[in-house]
Amino acid sequence: MRIYLKISYDGSKFQGFQQQTSTKNTILNKLILALNALGIKDVPVGSGRTDKGVHASNQALHLDIPPFWSDLKKLKIMLNRHLNPHIHVKKIYHVKKDFHARFSPIKREYRYIFYHGEFSPFLSSYVHFYPSFDMERLNDILELFKGRHDFEYFKKNGSESKNFIREIYNIKALPHKNKTIVIIQADGFLRSQIRMIISAVLKVYEGKLTHKQIKDQLDLKSIHTETLSPANGLYLHRVFYPKDIYK
């Protein structure tokens, strides 16, 4: 019986999403331990990997569970007893057997949060502290990345994908109280792609790079920046699936 888990987590408490040989402190490893404690041996598959320090409001996973776990409400309660406080199962759905958390999405949305107030150690793991923006200028720079591009020069080495073409459907910055939230929706993302894009945008905003240099890097003519913005401001906000996945 295949299920779809929708979870949130505090990425600052873990060394990343995926299992690693160097540490057991990963989100997936914590999930596996919780599932095993409930007699579920299948290894969950996530919609994608998040780096160390990156958070998720709505990460998606699938796995197959034994028939004795037909009560999904009870399963959610029991999982959260093992996972809280840094991981939380929000929803569990029955889905069709061919549903795949990684390959079934039609688009994904990440959000990057800048905070313009006074520094606080209580917020430092969850936002990127930065002076206020001229929103028109910021959105003008973000617009450079919209559309279908080969993002080979905007990814971190080690990406599993051999195809670097991605389409960014929407990328914009919105003010919210003393924050700026950058929303990015695309058909998919490469390893650390968003953090590299945000870093490049800030360099253009600060006058360290030009619009033309960004265009040249998108056109694979030259590399002008490979730095990453801090992970703490980044959130996997939503994974979009077709409506017919549910059983």
Rank of each mutant, 00 (worst) to 15 (best):
Leu5Val: 03
Lys6Tyr: 08
Ser8Trp: 06
Gly11Arg: 01
Ser12Thr: 09
Phe14Arg: 01
Ser22Ala: 14
Lys30Asn: 12
Leu35Glu: 05
Leu35Cys: 05
Asn36Phe: 10
Ile40Thr: 01
Ser47Phe: 06
Gly53Val: 03
Ala56Gln: 02
Ala56Ile: 01
Ala56Gly: 02
Gln59Ala: 07
Ala60Met: 07
His62Gly: 07
Pro66Phe: 10
Leu72Val: 03
Lys74Ala: 05
Asn80Gln: 08
Arg81Leu: 08
Leu83Asp: 08
His86Ile: 04
His88Tyr: 15
Lys91Tyr: 15
Lys96Pro: 06
Arg102Leu: 11
Arg102Ala: 09
Pro105Trp: 07
Arg111Ser: 05
Tyr112Met: 03
His116Glu: 14
Gly117His: 12
Glu118Gln: 11
Pro121Gly: 06
Phe122Gln: 09
Val127Lys: 00
Val127Arg: 00
Phe129His: 12
Pro131Val: 12
Phe133Gln: 05
Phe133Ser: 10
Met135Glu: 14
Glu136Ser: 14
Glu143Ala: 11
Glu143Ile: 05
Glu143Met: 08
Leu144His: 04
Phe145Thr: 00
Phe151Arg: 04
Glu152Gln: 14
Tyr153Met: 12
Tyr153Trp: 13
Lys156Ile: 08
Asn163Tyr: 13
Arg166Val: 04
Tyr169Asp: 07
Ala173Ile: 02
Ala173Leu: 02
Pro175Gln: 04
Ile183His: 11
Gln185Asp: 10
Ala186Glu: 05
Ala200Cys: 11
Ala200Leu: 03
Leu202Asp: 02
Tyr205Trp: 15
Tyr205Met: 11
Leu209Tyr: 07
His211Asn: 12
Gln213Leu: 09
Ile214His: 02
Lys215Tyr: 13
Gln217Arg: 09
Leu218His: 09
Leu220Arg: 15
Leu220Gly: 07
Ser222Tyr: 15
His224Arg: 01
Thr225Cys: 11
Ser229Met: 10
Ser229Asp: 11
Pro230Ser: 08
Pro230Met: 09
Phe240Ile: 04
Phe240Lys: 03
Phe240Cys: 03
Pro242Trp: 11
Asp244Tyr: 08
Asp244Leu: 07
Asp244Lys: 04
Ile245Asp: 09
